[in-house]
């Protein structure tokens, strides 16, 4: 069967969303783990070293290309699916059926749009300086010069509106994951009842723990819990 026919079918489009979603879930674990180094409370040394490793090593650089590919595929396919699905009912209901599903399950496109706006700001804050415009400050650890990304974080999260926007985005991420985690595994075909129950529970835990970790990072820096 032609790959084009598979990927353009209604099930194929969802498979793309599911597989890219799971890839992005795995990335969140790496990102949260690396950023959690700020809580070593050592003036950012552990975090800066970890960031230097990720920025200077060939493997993460190659994975970064795949990551951006995955993100954009997920975003573009998500919008195309949403627009296509909305076109299937020209005349809407006078009374909507809202009791059979959770609001966040029905609002994945809106939550995803909040996340897209967040990504644009987040890339401007951290990714663009680290790759293109340069990070002004540097530190030396064991004679090796590394970018002081920790100083950049402290500077970025000294503004209240940035912290508030990041926390709102983390809440959006939580609700996006609350539906997306278990939905992605159903989409790729896991239908065993025991695994469904397990994945739903793990997904709910993941959607609380990871966004909370991310939200605590700007809060910790803004409130001076980390120095």
């Amino acid at each position: 069967m032609a790959l084009k026919n598979v990927l353009t079918s209604s099930v194929g489009k969802k498979l793309v969303m599911g597989f890219t979603g799971i890839f992005l879930i795995l990335f969140l674990v790496v990102h949260a783990g690396l950023n959690a180094c700020i809580w070593a409370n050592d003036g950012g040394e552990m975090f800066n070293k970890a960031a230097h490793f990720m920025g200077g090593n060939l493997v993460p650089r190659i994975l970064e290309v795949g990551l951006f590919g995955g993100i954009f595929l997920h975003i573009i396919q998500g919008y195309l699916l949403t627009l296509d699905n909305r076109s299937k009912r020209s005349v809407g209901y006078a009374v909507d059926y809202s009791k059979g599903s959770k609001w966040y399950s029905r609002s994945m496109a809106i939550l995803g749009t909040i996340l897209l706006l967040f990504f644009i700001l987040h890339w401007k804050h951290f990714w663009v300086p680290s790759r293109f415009t340069g990070i002004p400050e540097a530190k030396f650890y064991n004679g090796i010069e590394v970018h002081d990304v920790f100083a950049l974080m402290k500077d970025t999260f000294s503004e209240a509106w940035v912290v508030i926007f990041y926390v709102i985005s983390c809440a959006a991420l939580g609700y996006h994951l609350a539906h997306g985690f278990q939905s992605a595994f159903k989409t790729i075909g896991i239908h065993n009842r025991r695994y469904h129950t397990m994945l739903s529970a793990v997904g709910m835990g993941f959607s609380i723990v990871i966004p909370t970790l991310f939200a605590l990072m700007p809060i910790s820096l803004y409130l001076g819990w980390i120095r």
Partner: peptide, 29 residues
């Protein structure tokens, strides 16, 4: 349209068909 696993179908089905069947359909496909 394409399924987004909201679960509204399962909740309203008069014969209580499980949404797990959709996951099985995805696997079969």
């Amino acid at each position: 349209g394409a399924c987004t696993n909201t679960g509204a179908c399962e909740a309203t089905c008069p014969k209580e068909i499980s949404i797990a069947n959709i996951a099985r359909l995805n696997k079969e496909y």
